[in-house]
Simulated scan of single mutants.
Amino acid sequence: MPPSQRRRRPVEDDGESDEDARPRQRPHIEASETEQEEEPSDEDAEMNGATSRVDEQLAKKLIRYVIACEYSRTPIRRDGIKERVLGKQSRSFRRIFELAQTQLRAVWGMELRELPVREKMTLHEKRQAMKSNTQSRSGSGAYVLSSALPEEYRSASILRPSKTPNAEQEATYMGFYTLLVSLIWLNGGEISEQKLQRSLMRLNADRMLASERTEVVLKRLERQGYVIKKVDRPPVGYEGDQTITWHVGPRAKEEIGLDGVMGLVREVYGHPEDAAFDKKLRSSLGLKSRQLGDGEGEDGNDVSMTNGA
């Protein structure tokens, strides 16, 4: 029978179109997708090695920079590191910083610690902070080089004063600013200009400290971040005298801390094991004791700040 005369079988309408009835073809898979990843070439290895060598050099440069800043007690700022050390590699700050930290701890027994953010102290500063829409920064962006040695290696017989400019002047300077910071902390975190001058007069240090004028030393302490001098002037149109107060600076909080203040007071008064004396000392520093279940301590208590100093 000719093909034209053959009867066609009726196609039932089951809802499928001709396109649906056709067998679906498998998508063509490119050969490149099935191939395994190529192993790194020698050129890539050389580039990685060159990057590693550059990072090592920058980390050593950063270590030299922070040690030089620490001898002069110059604030180590993030912007200064990017400008003087990293240069065009400023985007690699985190990687270089961590590498330098590892070398500082392993070789030098030191580490970089970020200073706390400077607090808003006056009413005007607090109002300006509330009005500003800028978000608060998580860190100060300034660092200090601190010892990372175990506690048993931090005795005065091992950690002697620096020989720059000489050991005697350095010891005098350290003793003075530790005493000054302790006085401020024992007065609730701030001390008036009049009260500070009375205290210095009792120490015979109101005019001269060794071979330097006390005024010059106080300005240096303020510049280095050990203390903060606040001058509150009366508003425009109001009569009155300006008020000067001294506060604990961010460097003192990190370098001395409350432990250093308590250690100094114990040495001066000679009551290291007196429980009643420790209770009065903690009260003067604005500390409160908590039971052993909430913290720890040699005497079964822990301390925490109450006045925010």
Rank of each mutant, 00 (worst) to 15 (best):
N133K: 14
A59Y: 06
E98P: 03
E83W: 06
A142C: 11
K126F: 04
C69I: 01
F97V: 06
A59M: 06
S140A: 06
Q89N: 08
S136T: 13
K131L: 15
Q103T: 12
K61G: 05
T122S: 14
G109K: 12
A106H: 13
G87Q: 10
S136C: 10
N133W: 05
L86D: 02
R73P: 00
E111I: 03
F93P: 02
S90A: 14
L115K: 00
M110Y: 07
V117T: 14
P75K: 01
M121T: 15
R95G: 07
E98G: 05
R73V: 00
V107G: 10
S136A: 14
Y71A: 00
T74K: 02
A106V: 01
V85T: 03
K82P: 00
Q135L: 15
E70F: 01
S90H: 05
L62I: 05
S52H: 12
E98M: 14
L86T: 04
K131W: 10
I67D: 01
A129V: 13
V117A: 09
L58K: 14
W108E: 09
I96P: 08
R127H: 15
Q135T: 15
G80Y: 00
R64I: 02
Q103E: 13
T51D: 10
R64N: 07
R95A: 10
A100G: 05
L104T: 10
S52W: 02
Q128D: 15
E83H: 08
R77F: 00
V85E: 04
K60Y: 09
W108N: 09
Q103I: 05
